[in-house]
């Protein structure tokens, strides 16, 4: 039984609440309503913001059941339907595509991106009659590469289903055969080290960087060192398993250091000459932050706990009997 309070505002009917943080939010953009599940408070049915009751009236019954939402103030439902299942899976895959906390440090493997895209397309097609975007299936199929599915025997049915969808929607699927990505061994050291006179580190804030870049449980570290007659700031931030290259910037004190993915070591690294007065201000440990343009810092107090909770959630999912094909392939 899922129970929600139902409230009306000037522009919407609110069923339950939005999850409190973006990284907990599993979203489906439906016609006339947003549906969301909270990763840290998973229920059978989604909360919703119905902003166009006329459009949503056509399909809301498939999510909550025809009898639900009849009482004022609250609603309770035990409705089950294939559409509800598809919506829950799609919401999960949307979340996993961007917030899955892949981490060497925490032992959370990356999700296989090709399989994730294919499964996303499959559930998108299962919901096409109620999605806001009337080209959602075509868009999702355009992301799929059939070649990435060949190394997963368990995905044979999915691959056949996707090929049939592509025929029905007139999308030419990419098919570049590729091998299953190997997990890197964590390489040690590497670059020449100078004489470090100061160093520091801080947990990575993953709300500041795009998906599939940094290790969700990693720490970014800086080192202030003297090398070949010059003072340099060296920064290293561990990459997520199966990370994609990205232009990240580390900020240590007032110094900005561009970082590059070194796939040999699985680390985003960078160096910059330290300004002459840097050494003067070394007392009291400099903070380090790794960021990408357009991402706002999450300053809330509980972000470390939230991150730990999401890592625990991901770990549970990998062992869960109702995990998606994508997760089972990763585990």
């Amino acid at each position: 039984m899922t129970a929600f309070t139902v409230r009306r505002t000037a522009t919407a009917i609110l069923v339950g609440d939005r999850p409190p943080h973006p990284e907990r939010t599993m979203l489906v953009e439906a016609r006339g309503a947003l549906l969301y599940w909270d990763a840290l408070d998973l229920r059978a049915h989604p909360a919703a913001e119905v902003f166009d009751a006329r459009a949503a009236g056509d399909w809301l019954w498939e999510v909550y059941g025809p009898e639900a939402l009849t009482g004022a103030g609250t609603m309770a439902t035990e409705w089950e339907s294939p559409v509800l299942d598809a919506a829950r899976n799609l919401a999960f895959l949307h979340w996993a595509g961007v917030w899955w906390p892949a981490s060497h440090a925490a032992g959370i493997p990356a999700l296989p991106a090709g399989l994730l895209r294919a499964e996303t397309a499959w559930y998108t097609a299962g919901l096409e009659h109620l999605l806001d975007d009337d080209t959602a299936v075509e868009r999702a199929l355009a992301e799929v590469d059939l070649g990435t599915l060949v190394s997963y025997p368990e995905a044979a049915d999915l691959a056949a289903g996707i090929a049939d969808l592509a025929d029905s929607y007139g999308v030419a699927l990419r098919d570049t055969a590729r091998l299953r990505p190997e997990d890197w061994a964590l390489a040690a050291g590497g670059a020449e080290e100078g004489l470090a006179v100061a160093s520091g580190s801080a947990p990575i804030d993953w709300s500041l960087v795009p998906a599939r870049t940094l290790d969700a449980a990693g720490e970014a570290a800086w080192r202030f060192e003297h090398r070949s007659g010059a003072w340099v700031l060296h920064v290293a931030a561990p990459a997520a398993p199966d990370a994609a290259p990205a232009a990240l910037t580390a900020v240590v004190d007032t110094v900005e250091i561009p970082l590059r993915l070194d796939s040999g070591t699985g680390t985003f690294t960078g160096e910059a000459p330290a300004p002459p007065d840097f050494a003067m201000r070394l007392g009291g440990g400099r903070p380090i932050q790794v960021q990408a343009p357009g991402y706002a810092a999450d300053r809330s107090e509980d972000r470390a706990e939230r991150r730990a909770a999401l890592i625990a959630f991901a770990r549970d999912r990998l062992a869960s009997p109702d995990a998606t094909l994508t997760e089972r392939a990763a585990a």
Partner: peptide, 19 residues
Amino acid sequence: MVHGLAASAAVPRGMLVAD
């Protein structure tokens, strides 16, 4: 059906069609 979204003596068309 969804309170206030549909008159009580009526059924969402989508539901009838799906059925």
